[in-house]
Design a protein around this nucleic acid. Structure first.
Lengths: 205, 205
DNA sequence: GTCTATACTCTGATAGAC
DNA sequence: GTCTATCAGAGTATAGAC
């Protein structure tokens, strides 16, 4: 995908493509706020402090920019979730899932631009691009498959439904989340608790 | 794409604005598949069998077209949900909720273009338009607030969380739904059952 | 290597002919 | 009610100066 800039240090010039990060930051910023289609190369260039044409030295197209932002976003969310799971009690699978969900939510809701671009609706008019992006996200979501499969469910066949409910409810939260309301940890705790205990049991443990 | 009947059977009254529906259908078709930003007025005009400039006789702008599609979409989903609730046992609030959710899912997943446009991500770069669209959707979602409030929850304070989980999981389902997999009724039944009984109770009914 | 200048197409929208 | 003609601006991308 990249690495086309300086193939190798054939000389002692340590100067590498440093503006590339600035360009990517600007693209993430715009994609998050305006969406992909409504963002122009001139927008991104202005934020990065250059003209539109200059972007094409760093990335070969607007599409390549979106893919790069997605890759970085998925990587950041995955890292946050992995760290949260590692910090949880290995003997408590429900706690591990809750921690993972809280980290997922924190990335989506309060995380940086990269993470939030990943959650936005995918461009429907470019099937090939869409497939690439979905693949990136699916790889990440495998983590939740593992976490849910580790739960002692009363109906093990429900594992798929539990995963889809939690991830769906979490991803949709960006439409109703308010910074002055419940935070990621609280949201995750309530979602997991309801799935765990249900709403007809007289007492919840 | 459409059948433009230029013939008036009843000559007493000229049929005014009949192509308006065709235009709206074409807009819904395109918005669903390409998203708002990626759809051009020329796309819509071609599908409606006219030229771009002619659209402006029926709608004053592209934005007005999107709002009209949303209004129609929300109306159709609401009608489907209302009918499903009316058909359920009035004495079984869980059944009423499940029916409503199934109808909601059916509209989203197998419904027409109008319903699916409502679920797509909102244009983030037009705050005013965004507010208008969110208001339309919120009015509709009040139905689920009523349905969830009628449930005999073990923790009545969970009503808000239950509603957000179900609606979020349902709305997100468009990203993983496959026509050859579980249908709307089955998805709704599983979601509601898990919320109702939880996953730690030894036996479920 | 980095950026300016620019090419060329397409965008939403308008005005007036028919 | 629809079309033709057209606009000013924005779209992506390239060529080549420095």
């Amino acid at each position: 995908m990249d690495g086309q800039a300086t193939v190798d240090n054939e000389t002692s010039k340590p100067r590498v493509n440093n503006r590339r990060h600035g360009v990517l930051d600007a693209a993430a910023y715009r994609f998050r706020r305006q969406g992909f289609a409504a963002t122009t190369m001139r927008d991104i260039a202005a934020d990065a402090g250059m003209l539109a044409g200059s972007l094409y030295y760093h990335f070969k197209s607007k599409t390549a920019l979106l893919i790069a932002v997605h890759e970085e976003g998925v990587r950041r969310i995955a890292d946050a979730v992995d760290a949260a799971v590692a910090a949880a009690d290995p003997a408590d699978p429900w706690q591990r899932l809750e921690n993972a969900l809280a980290a997922h939510l924190a990335s989506l809701l309060d995380g940086g631009d990269y993470a939030q671009v990943v959650i936005r609706d995918l461009p429907a008019d470019k099937p090939e691009l869409r497939a690439t992006l979905i693949e990136l996200r699916d790889d990440y979501e495998q983590r939740f498959r593992v976490l849910v499969d580790a739960l002692p469910l009363s109906r093990p066949a429900d594992a798929g439904w539990v995963r889809l409910m939690l991830l769906g409810a979490a991803n949709w939260s960006k439409t109703w989340y308010r910074p002055d309301g419940a935070g990621p940890a609280e949201i995750a705790a309530n979602f997991v608790r309801i799935i765990k205990h249900g709403e007809t049991s007289g007492t919840t443990s």
